[in-house]
C-alpha cells in the first residue's frame, strides 16, 4: 500500500487540536494493519498475540516512513505511537461494549476451565495508567508509547528523544514498574 502523502499532515492536525483528523487517520492505520495481517495470519496458529503486536509495529514503521524529514522524525515517531495507542484503545473500548452480552457465557466456560482466565489487565487499564504517568513524568510516558505502541528499539528511542540508550533502558524499567504498580495495586512479587 502506498501511504497517503497527507498522513504526516493529518498527524500534525490531530495533535494541534483537530480531533476530526483522527477519523481520517484511523482508516489509514486499519488499512495498513489489514494489509500486513493477511501475511502474518496465514502463518500457523498459536503465538498470535506476538504476531499481532509485530503487525502493529510494522504498520507503525511503514506509516511513519512517509515523507518525514530526518530532523522531524523524533516528533513524528511520538505522534504516530500516540496514534497507535489511540487506535488500539478505542478498538478495545468499542469491543468491550459489543462483548458485554456474551460475558456470561465466557464466564461459564472459564469456570469450566475451557478457556484461561483473563490476564492481569487490558490495554484500556494500561491507557488509564499511562495518563497518570503522563501527569507525573511525561518523559516516561513517552518512552513507553514509543517502545510498546510504536515498537521502537531502545536504540531507536534514544535517537528519537536525544538520550543515551542506557537512559532509555532505565526509563522504561522505571515506567513499566510504576505502571504495573498503578494498575495492579502494589503487591509483593
Amino acid at each position: 500500500m502506498q501511504v497517503p502523502a497527507n498522513f504526516t499532515q493529518l498527524l500534525t492536525e490531530w495533535r494541534s487540536g483537530h480531533p476530526q483528523a483522527l477519523d481520517r487517520l484511523t482508516p489509514l492505520v486499519y488499512d495498513e494493519l489489514r494489509r500486513l495481517a493477511r501475511n502474518y495470519m496465514r502463518a500457523e496458529r498459536g503465538s498470535h498475540t506476538l504476531q499481532a503486536t509485530a503487525v502493529v509495529h510494522e504498520a507503525f514503521l511503514r506509516l511513519i516512513q512517509a515523507n518525514v524529514a530526518l530532523q522531524d522524525r523524533g516528533h513524528f515517531f511520538a505522534l504516530a505511537s500516540r496514534l497507535m495507542r489511540r487506535v488500539l484503545v478505542d478498538h478495545a473500548k468499542s469491543r468491550s461494549r459489543m462483548k458485554r452480552n456474551v460475558d456470561a457465557r465466557d464466564l461459564a466456560a472459564e469456570v469450566a476451565g475451557e478457556i484461561p482466565p483473563p490476564m492481569d489487565f487490558d490495554v484500556v487499564a494500561l491507557d488509564d495508567a499511562l495518563e497518570g504517568l503522563q501527569q507525573l513524568e511525561p518523559r516516561l510516558a513517552q518512552v513507553i508509547e514509543l517502545h510498546y505502541f510504536g515498537g521502537l528499539t531502545y536504540d531507536q528511542i534514544a535517537v528519537a528523544v536525544g538520550a543515551s540508550t542506557a537512559t532509555v533502558h532505565r526509563d522504561i524499567r522505571l515506567a513499566r514498574a510504576w505502571l504495573l504498580n498503578e494498575i495492579g495495586g502494589t503487591r509483593p512479587a
Partner: peptide
C-alpha cells in the same frame, strides 16, 4: 496487554 488488543 497490547498484543491482546492488537490481536482482537
Amino acid at each position: 496487554a497490547i498484543g491482546e488488543a492488537a490481536e482482537s
